[in-house]
Nucleic acid binder design. Sequence first.
DNA 1: CCGGTCAATTGATATTTATCAAGAGGCTAG
DNA 2: CTAGCCTCTTGATAAATATCAATTGACCGG
Lengths: 232, 232
Amino acid sequence: MRPTEIPEIRALALFRDMSDDQFEALMRAAYVQTLPPGIELFHEGDRPDFLHVVVEGSVELFAEWSGHETTMQIVQPVATIILAATLRDAPFLMSARTLERSHIVLVPSDDVRQVFASDGAFARAVVGELAGCYRSMVKAQKDLKLRSSTERLANWILRQDGIADRAGPITIDLEKRKLASLLGMTPENLSRALNRLADHGVVVEGKELQASDLPALRRFARPTPLIDQHDI
Amino acid sequence: MRPTEIPEIRALALFRDMSDDQFEALMRAAYVQTLPPGIELFHEGDRPDFLHVVVEGSVELFAEWSGHETTMQIVQPVATIILAATLRDAPFLMSARTLERSHIVLVPSDDVRQVFASDGAFARAVVGELAGCYRSMVKAQKDLKLRSSTERLANWILRQDGIADRAGPITIDLEKRKLASLLGMTPENLSRALNRLADHGVVVEGKELQASDLPALRRFARPTPLIDQHDI
DNA sequence: CCGGTCAATTGATATTTATCAAGAGGCTAG
DNA sequence: CTAGCCTCTTGATAAATATCAATTGACCGG
């Protein structure tokens, strides 16, 4: 494991408050994998042998049923992947694959569970993390059940960093079909939804996107902190 | 607080392994409310002053946006309600109301957070509970994104206790319009979906429902443990 | 530089789901 | 017992979304 990655991981809220001893115990058997895009880290139904931490790149969590597939979440650095399954020693409910060249730290699940059982600070940090994951899922479900596809897209745009700066366009840094799947629609529908948002000042050219009339977009999207604010 | 309710709460996985002292500290300031149907316990956006435990009756968790409302979950005894908000001291993302005459135990949030910070066994139990809540939400989202409304209904039926006994019909013990909202459809659509399932042996009369051809219903519903099994 | 591959878009159409309207049946308060 | 209310159901229609097909355009390897 490269020494440069250790401080990054240590800085995560999950590991910040635990004792040095315990952290070292966790990292002793951990190792880094550098993976090209499109590699499947694990598949739903698998048992969690390792806790995965995305240090660089990005990872898609997706789920399948009856021949369909849907994107559930995109995990950006630095973050852990599905802690819940690891702690419960229960099968993954989602699969994971790299979207770009990525560095993934693998921490043996047994070690995580052992440190979890003996280090109170770590246990409390885990609760904070899990509560956040749960609340994100609640927000996602409200988004899906209460909004139309175009409304979901409009609010997604408003949630993007930098969209409020009138400096210039932002970049959609994932494939549009992944975005469509994440938002619960087809790629064709995403194209049409983007066209519909042109009436509210959204200008798209390839992967560049600009909201030229933010008040109009907000009037249409009607964002609420109880769905759209990620840090509460 | 009635002494008869204390053992029931103590038996919950969440409180089972904590010390007697800590449990008593939690229960000292707790009290029971007996409420008629239709009472709102709290509203999304409120701050969690109490951890709510449903001891008898049932409670609906719902969310609103832009004049619409959707049922997110029905909580049956004995279970806690949205532990995540209490622990994070963050605003509720969902509202709660009683569906029938219910007994609710209210435990002051400060006490919960204090015991959580000092009792490792409780902290670990909380993690188990939260991980379970998170996984339930993941399953619900997979259900929503991967299945049609009729498929969701068919799988909901298969998940009901007693549906596999050929003994007789089960009772749908909530209003059909709540069920429709829970499954992410309109009441009209639920009526039609039930009619469509008649082709697969589902017989409905009022609140009585029987699956007369279970293999046929399973062929249509294609249940999978990774969405439909609640205890993994 | 060219050809192939694949994501994105657009159009046409089908399916699913929601909405609106009306009527049937059951429950309850008076 | 009955009037009124409310849920559920059914039918007709509208809107949203998905599917299928074809084309465009960008990127990549040879």
